[in-house]
Design a protein around this nucleic acid. Structure first.
Lengths: 356, 356
DNA sequence: TTGAAAGCGCTAACAC
DNA sequence: GTGTTAGCGCTTTCAA
């Protein structure tokens, strides 16, 4: 009885409407050369049969009208912001978005991108920087690609990056201006980024070192690496559990910053003991109960830009575009002047400013 | 010069290996009847040419080895937990996961599911309850489907639900045991669930009412609806900004609970004035700086189960399965005894308790 | 303006 | 054990 697993094809629609398959195809893609009468007939038949063209079949000749986005992990809210922005930008177009998460293993980025390519998407947004440039060149020859957060330039693919060097500098200087000198940087293990110096975290780390040096704090420079997922707490506890703990931490992203705050709390400390700055300005961090000072790089906006660039590429643009976003510092309660006692939690004293 | 946009096909591999296309196909699917010698030759050719079979072409005859998951919004961390669980369960299989977010519009669930069906995925996990049962029957006749959080039963699709009635009861009783009588429920607008009484939030709301009635608090019952995305703060401010504000709030999920806490803070109140319970036990809520009391329904575990059921269906199971998960209460700092004093953050006044 | 026909890259009978 | 062949559902020349 169950006819099951068989669905209506373009052939059925053609029969119902009393026209040819190609006629139906033309109507669907509103191609040139269809009379109003035929269009009406076909559209009726489509509606009556609830016909849905199969993307797979279509992919063999034409486009899939699908854009794919690869993200390292769905757990990091910055990436969900990007996705929201991208989805919003696609609203009203005939393109759909599918998402491929790379997951917890630090070498799965290329695999997730490949998953999208195998599915013949019309364009790919990729976030992982752990991708071999050569492989990327090949891939981008066959499919339009936009890389997010990759600090290099290629003739074949577009890039959208935040000015990570500036963001890191702002974070460090903000802490410095509050009187902090012992400023550590906690960031993700560079293994994740395949040791390439072009990922956002590599750039932030470099800028952190440079800024510390500029401020005459080269000897106070301390970088701690944490695994991509999990393990943040252990690393933070180790850093903060020692007598010579830093008075401030600049975290590579908000998730790490939250882990650091977690450890601060577990050690019975407060943000008067350890100031914390994050990166991404996620909703969670912005919540009044957390009030995390953070660098905003507007994931939503980046998502929108990324989609725009991809659609331009699909429409035929050949020259590469490399967009740079300027970040903003959002000062909140997790950064407080050094050596302050507290009210809400702080009063002002003067800080020894040892500028040159 | 750029040969571009043309890639290696099964034909090329066959030629390189000096065998037929079907031989290559068999090796790829490790089907029966290939000599070791041939296998070796073919595998070499595949590697040398970096051949990737096209999922679209494969979809026309066989399987896509792709599972699709539809979620209402990527912003709700519970869904990202489910995705993580599902992805983990797929590790080591040849199946891939793609994600289709429905986005901010409350009627886009079916559309997102359709996106997956159009792409010929081998199975679909769907979360939206705003789906016409009849349409679902049709779809599930053609593609294996597991519905998450849908409190109904069908012969064609499997379901995985949390015992939402129990969870809501636990939340209300927990507050009651702390002395609260004025307990409001803030949940998402039922429009989102298409007015069907089978969605998790509808069930929680019903259970809330019933539990209140059982406790003799029928006249204290108060339900406030908020839009799916955004608008939580406004609704919460309106609820808490009045003199007869409730002393406790049971929120439909953690995101809403965070919004309520946000409003609590903005009104200059603390959780000593208003206790808050959430649902989902998200990472954010569990953070020590938030310490949200919540009902845990283990999204990760649900994701794993959902994948297992789907793979069983694909393997041929016909009889429907309906799994029910038992939730757990995680008591944390956002729920405090009514009228308690205490060190951390509050002074006591006495409240007029007008019990029957 | 319309339709016939030739594939797209792959799988699965079926022959050899 | 291996190759031949017939499509899967669609788009796209190219004739009519």
């Amino acid at each position: 009885m169950t006819q099951a697993r068989t669905s209506v094809t373009i052939e059925d629609v053609a029969a119902r409407a009393g026209v040819s398959r190609s006629a139906v195809s033309k109507v669907m893609r509103d191609a040139y050369g269809v009379s109003d009468a035929m269009r009406a007939k076909v559209e009726t038949a489509i509606a009556e049969l609830a016909y849905r063209p199969r993307v797979s079949a279509r992919a063999m000749r034409g486009a899939t009208y699908t854009l794919g986005i690869e993200i390292p992990t769905i757990k990091n809210p910055f990436f969900t912001q990007v996705i929201s922005g991208a989805a919003a930008a696609l609203e009203g177009t005939r393109y759909q978005l599918i998402i491929a998460p790379a997951g917890p293993h630090h070498d799965r980025g290329p695999q997730a991108i490949q998953v999208l390519a195998d599915r013949q998407v019309d364009g790919i947004v990729a976030v992982s920087t752990a991708v071999d440039p050569e492989w990327l060149e090949d891939l981008s020859a066959a499919t339009p690609i936009v890389m997010l957060g990759r600090h290099d330039a290629s003739r074949n693919y577009d890039t959208v990056v935040n000015d990570d060097a500036l963001g890191a500098r702002m974070a460090v200087r903000h802490l410095y201006d509050l009187g902090h000198r012992d400023i550590a940087h906690v960031t993700i293990d560079p293994l994740w980024e395949n040791h390439l110096p072009i990922g956002p975290h590599a750039v932030r780390a470099r800028s952190y070192r440079e800024t510390m040096a500029e401020l005459g704090l080269a000897d106070r420079t301390r970088v701690v690496y944490v695994p991509q997922e999990g393990g943040i707490d252990d690393a933070a506890l180790a850093l903060l559990g020692t007598p010579d703990r830093p008075t401030a931490v600049f975290a590579g992203h908000d998730e790490i910053a939250l882990g650091v705050l977690n450890s601060v709390a577990r050690l019975g400390l407060t943000t008067s003991d350890v100031s914390v700055v994050g990166y991404d300005d996620s909703d969670v961090g912005a919540h009044p109960m957390v009030a995390l000072t953070s660098i905003n790089q507007s994931g939503t906006r980046m998502g929108e830009i990324v989609v725009r660039l991809l659609l331009e590429r699909i429409a035929g643009r050949e020259e590469p575009v490399h967009e740079v976003i300027t970040p903003t510092l959002m000062a909140r309660r997790t950064t407080v002047p050094l050596a302050s006692g507290d009210g809400r939690q702080l009063q002002a004293h003067d800080l020894p400013t040892q500028n040159k």
